[in-house]
Structure formats: structure tokens, C-alpha cells
Design a protein around this nucleic acid. Sequence first.
DNA 1: GGTAGGATGGGCT
DNA 2: GCCCATCCTACCC
Length: 203
Amino acid sequence: MLFGRILPRSFYARSTVEVARGLLGKVLVHGSTAGIIVETEAYLGGDDLAAHSARGLSARTRVIFGPPGHAYVYLIYGMYECLNLVAEPDGRPGCVLIRALVPVRGVELMRARRGISRGVEQLANGPGKLTLALGITRAHNGVDVTRGPLVVRERVGAGDIKIEVTPRIGITRSADLPLRFVLVREASVGGTDDRVLSSVELP
DNA sequence: GGTAGGATGGGCT
DNA sequence: GCCCATCCTACCC
């Protein structure tokens, strides 16, 4: 698995939906651990009542209104942390929740952090699981993901991908909007990555 | 295969 | 005080 360049800020300075779709198939890297992004959700500005930014600017939502290409990490249910990547030009709200990864580097460390000896496909197949597996915490809230140690990279040799679109998971407001994006499989046949990508079990 | 319930703490009304 | 952008275990088909 070869990683390409770090995604530049211009990648994130687009509409939240474009960024959510564009992140599929890219590689999230933190230290010695990395995984291919296979599931994302877009949380928009404006009429999207499920978004944390819907209630306006606050100490918590400040990052979402800030410049693109930064991490928004928050605590959910008092126990887990969720990673978002901020989209849209500076000053406009919008972020992408990373919901699932296929581990490609540092699998043993991920296993140790998760405290389980289960299949590799279950190490990072959920928003609370992947932050635990990659060692991402609220200490990363606001960090610039166009500079290390937490970055997203291109994947060398990645072909066309197929994307499935569904409503978002686990929300009650604005629940019917088609803003969840899942990487179904590689369209190009024959790469060893096909097996890896199809092995993820989405929660 | 499926679902019900509990853990656990911060943000907001 | 209530509501969560969740996960795991136990238990029941």
C-alpha cells in the first residue's frame, strides 16, 4: 500500500457533499496507523438540523465555522469520540463525519488500543471505533489536517470507485436527507485492494 | 440471525 | 434535566 500526497486545503474548501464523496478511498493517517476511508456523512450548514452547527456559533462549534482542512472532534454519549473534517470556505459551516475505515497499517497497535482480538474488519468500522483505533482524541480538536501528524493522503494507484448514498445513521432530525456515502468497491478489477475494501463490515 | 439495555459526561434548554 | 452523529454484552430466537 503506497500513500500519495497529503490532500491540500483546496480539497476541503468545497461543498461539504463534494468533500464527503471525495474522501472515500483516501487514507487517514495518524502516526504508525492508517486506514482507507470507506464511509462518510455530510453535516451541512443552513437547514440541516442534525448538524451541531445548526444552533449557531459556540465554544463547541467554533471549529466547524473556521477554515477548511481542520479536525472537529467531539465527545459522544460520554464515552466515545467522533472525528469530522471541516469543509466549505472559511466562515461557512460544514463538516464530514468519518464513519468507517479499512485498516491498512498498524493493525496490531489498533488491536491493542481497542482491547480486542477480533477480525481486522471490526477494528475501525464505526465512528467511535476508528478514533480509538487510530488514537484520535479531543486533543486533536482544531488541528490542521494538511500538516502532520494527523493527515489524509491520496492512495497511489486508486482507480474509479462506486459510491452508495443513503440517509445518515443514528440521528432523528433531518433524518431523511441522502447524506451518507459508502465506498462499495473498486470499479477496477484485479487489484489486491479489492479484497481489503470488500472485507469491511459496516455497522 | 436479531434486539434491548446500560455505560457515561458534556452541551444546551 | 434531557438529549445525544455510539458500542458492547446479554439474551432470545
